[in-house]
Simulated assay, not measured.
Amino acid sequence: MTNTKPTMLHSDRGSVFSVFSEEELKNMTNNSKRKVAICGRINNSGIVEVPEGATLAEIIELAGGILDKKDFKGAHVGVPPYGRFLSKEELNKELDFDLFDNYIRAINVL
């Protein structure tokens, strides 16, 4: 994981969002097809190099795991309002990189 850390915003409803600009995300992720920006209710938000065949659960572990070892609720893959919501049933499936925009690969763990 690199040193690139986003600024985090916490809503009064419990949502957590990163404040990477679209340009920052493009610059951080476009030099490798296997990098994603990950943020939300995890211990180490930032850019993660994703091994071939990695599941969402493994990617979350690469980012230090879920805060306070709480249960996984879901994740938004892509940049809102686009992308897709992944549920607990998809946690142990291989992450499909086709879910992402060509340039911006972001995961927000809820």
Rank of each mutant, 00 (worst) to 15 (best):
E58R: 07
K69T: 10
Y103A: 14
I107N: 03
A63D: 10
D96S: 11
L67R: 13
K93F: 08
E58T: 06
I66M: 02
Y82M: 09
V79R: 08
F72I: 00
N108H: 12
A57V: 01
R84G: 06
I107A: 03
G46A: 05
L62T: 12
L110A: 15
D96R: 06
Y82C: 11
S45E: 09
R84E: 13
K70M: 09
P51F: 01
E94D: 03
G46T: 11
S45R: 07
E90H: 10
R84I: 14
F100I: 03
A106F: 12
P80M: 14
L91S: 11
I66Q: 09
L62Q: 13
L62F: 12
E49Y: 00
E94L: 10
E58A: 07
E89L: 08
L91H: 03
E89A: 15
T55Q: 05
R105G: 04
P51A: 05
N44S: 12
V109R: 08
E58W: 04
V50I: 12
F85D: 06
G46C: 04
I47Q: 01
F85P: 10
P51D: 13
D68T: 07
K88H: 13
E90W: 00
G64H: 04
A54R: 06
K70D: 08
K73R: 13
I59Q: 08
D96W: 09
Y103D: 15
P51I: 12
L56D: 02
R84A: 15
I104W: 13
G78L: 00
N108D: 13
E89Y: 10
L67F: 06
L110K: 14
P80G: 06
F72L: 00
G53L: 09
V77R: 01
Y103Q: 14
T55L: 02
L62G: 12
E49A: 09
T55R: 06
G83M: 00
K93E: 11
S87T: 14
A63N: 05
L86P: 01
I60V: 02
D101H: 15
H76M: 12
V79E: 10
D101I: 08
A63E: 10
G46K: 07
D101W: 06
V77S: 00
V109S: 08
E90D: 15
K88G: 01
I42A: 02
Y82L: 13
A54V: 03
R105P: 07
K93D: 13
D98V: 02
E94R: 06
V77I: 15
F100Q: 04
E49Q: 05
V50P: 11
K73E: 07
E89V: 07
L91A: 10
V50A: 03
A57G: 05
